[in-house]
Amino acid sequence: MQKNFKNSSLFTGLFSLLILAFLANLALGNVLIPLGDVCEILINQTHEKHTWTYIILDYRFPKAIVAILTGVGLSISGLIMQTLFRNPLAGPYVLGLSSGASLGVAIVIMGSFLLPTFVADFLVNDYGILIGAFFGSFLVLLLVFFVASKLKDTMSILIVGLMFSSLTSAIINVLTSFSSAEQLQKFTFWTLGSLGNLNQNQVYLLTIVVSIGLLLSFTIIKPLDGLLLGENYARSLGISIKRTRNISIIATSILAGTITAFVGPIAFVGLAIPHMSKLIFQTSNHKTLFIATLLLGAITMLVCDTISQMPNQDFTIPINAITSILGAPVVIWLIIRKKGIR
C-alpha cells in the first residue's frame, strides 16, 4: 500500500536523523571533536587524545543517552495522556505531573526533618528521590483524573492542571521556609535540572525504569486505538477501560515521575512531540504514532541538548529554557490553528 511505503520512508528518514543528531550531540560542545574521531572513540573506546576520550565516554555519551531517554519517556507519556483525556493539549508538564514530582522530591529532601535521622538517611538518596517523584506525579494524575471525570470541557481540565501546579509550588515554598540551608541548596540544585549531572548508577537506574514504563505503554497500544471512538464504543469492542486507564496512569507516572526526578522539570516536550508525530504521519494509529513519537522525542531532546551546550562557547543554557522557548510557540500555534478544540 502507498501509505505503508510513505510511512516506512518517513521512518527511515527519522532514524537517519536520529543517528545524525546523536553524533552531532557528541561532537559539538565547548570542545569541538571531529565526527571521525567521535566514531573512533565510540568503536575503540580509546583515542590518542585522552581528554577527548574522557569527554565523550564519561560525559557526552551518558548525557546523550539521558537526553534520548528523557525525550522518549516524556513524549510517550504525553501521547498516552492526549488519547486518554481526549485532549490535544494534555501533557505531563501542562497537567501538573512535573510539579507533582517536584513536590514529592521537595518532601523527601526538605520534609525529612520531620523524621528520625536514620529514616531520613535512608530516604534521602537516589531511590528516595525516585519514589518521591513517582508518588508526587501519580497523586497529581489521580486528582486530575478525578476532576476530569466530573468535567467534560477539555479547557477546564487544563486550568485544573495549572491550579495543581500553583498549589504544589505554594506547598514547596512553605516547605522551603522550614528547611535548613543545606537542604535548600540540595533542592535548588535539583530544580535547575540538567541532563549531564547523573552518575553512572543513576543512568542505569533511569534506563531500567524508563524501559519498564515504555514496556507498560506498549501493552496498551491496541486499547488506545479503540479509545479514539470514545469510552462507550471502546467498551463495546471488548476493551477494559479500567485496566487501560490503570496501566496508563502507572506508565505515565513512572515515565514522567522518574525523568523529572533525575533531570528536573522539562517543559513542553511531552505536549509538542506527539503533535509533531500526528502532523507528520497524518494518522491516529497508535502503533505508527508510538514509533514516530519515540524517534521524534529522542531527536528533539538531542537537538535541544546540543543547543543548550552552546557549541564553541564557554557557557551553557539550562535545557528547560530551550524546550520552553521551542515548545511554547508550538502550543500557541496549535490553539490558534484548531479553534474548534473542545
Binding site: P88, G230, N232, Y233, S236, T283, S284, G340, I341
Partner: peptide
C-alpha cells in the same frame, strides 16, 4: 453484540 450510538466521536485523524 455491536452498537452504534448517538455519541459524537472525539476528534482524531482516523480515516
Amino acid at each position: 453484540l455491536s452498537i452504534v450510538t448517538t455519541e459524537k466521536l472525539p476528534a482524531s485523524n482516523l480515516t
